[in-house]
Computed example of a mutant assay.
Amino acid sequence: MKLKLEMIVLPVSDIDRAKAFYEKIGFRLDVDYTAGEDFRIVHFTPSGSECSIMFGEEMTPLAPGSLQGLYLIVDDIEEAHAELTGRGIEVSEIFHDAGGLFHGHEGGDVTHRRPGQQRLAGLHPERASYGSFLTFSDPDGNGWVIQEIKQRHPGR
């Protein structure tokens, strides 16, 4: 069986504010559909992605801003940092893990630190794939991680 991740439903408090943010960040607007006064969905796709995000009226029981660790992958994290800041998006500085690559997820921390991990400023020293990161949040606090991958692990 072949499975592909297609859609992630984001919990947001203000549909128009979220729509403006994801337009500003450069995601492609696929759908903004309203049916009556009580139903609206907005659907975006990040450039180069097959997986999309969607938000709208009462689409999820999750609290706005409760999704953390949503990954976007780029070939050049310095270019991504410059483009996002140029669009007026508040992003972290580029960082890497002192002990190697970030693994695991601890209590909703968008930096994905485990006990004993140390987040260091700057690119991974060897500029290794999977080694350099930056983070940002949407207006509700849903947390995104951008990770640089120049060469994927075999089988990916």
Rank of each mutant, 00 (worst) to 15 (best):
Q151H: 13
P154E: 13
G65M: 10
G86H: 01
E126R: 13
F102M: 14
P154L: 09
P46N: 08
I25Q: 01
H124I: 06
M54L: 14
S92F: 10
D138F: 06
A35Y: 10
H96M: 02
A18K: 07
V74L: 08
K4M: 08
G100K: 14
A98F: 10
G131R: 04
A128M: 12
I149R: 08
M7D: 13
K24L: 13
I146D: 01
E50G: 08
P61Q: 12
R114N: 14
G26D: 05
H105S: 14
I15D: 01
N142L: 06
Q147F: 01
P125K: 06
E126S: 14
L10N: 07
F44W: 01
G116Y: 10
L5W: 03
Y22G: 02
F44Y: 10
L29H: 07
L5A: 09
H124P: 04
Y71T: 11
R156C: 09
E106A: 10
G48Q: 04
M7N: 15
L134M: 13
M7C: 05
D75P: 01
C51L: 07
G36F: 11
A20G: 00
F44S: 00
F55R: 04
L101M: 11
I77G: 08
G26W: 03
V42S: 07
I89W: 04
R127I: 02
K19Q: 15
E93Y: 06
H124F: 06
A63W: 00
G36Y: 11
L84H: 03
L67Q: 15
E106W: 12
P125S: 04
D30G: 05
R119I: 15
D16P: 00
L62E: 14
A82W: 00
H153C: 05
F102Y: 10
P64D: 05
E78V: 10
G56P: 05
L3R: 06
G88K: 02
I77F: 08
S137D: 08
T85C: 05
P154T: 03
L29S: 10
R17S: 09
W144R: 01
G122D: 03
D32P: 05
E58Y: 04
G116W: 11
S66K: 03
I146H: 02
T45I: 13
R40G: 02
A80H: 09
A128T: 11
G100N: 14
H43C: 03
I77M: 09
T85P: 01
F133Q: 02
Y33P: 00
P125T: 04
F39C: 06
L72P: 01
Y22D: 02
D75K: 15
V42M: 10
P46S: 07
H112P: 00
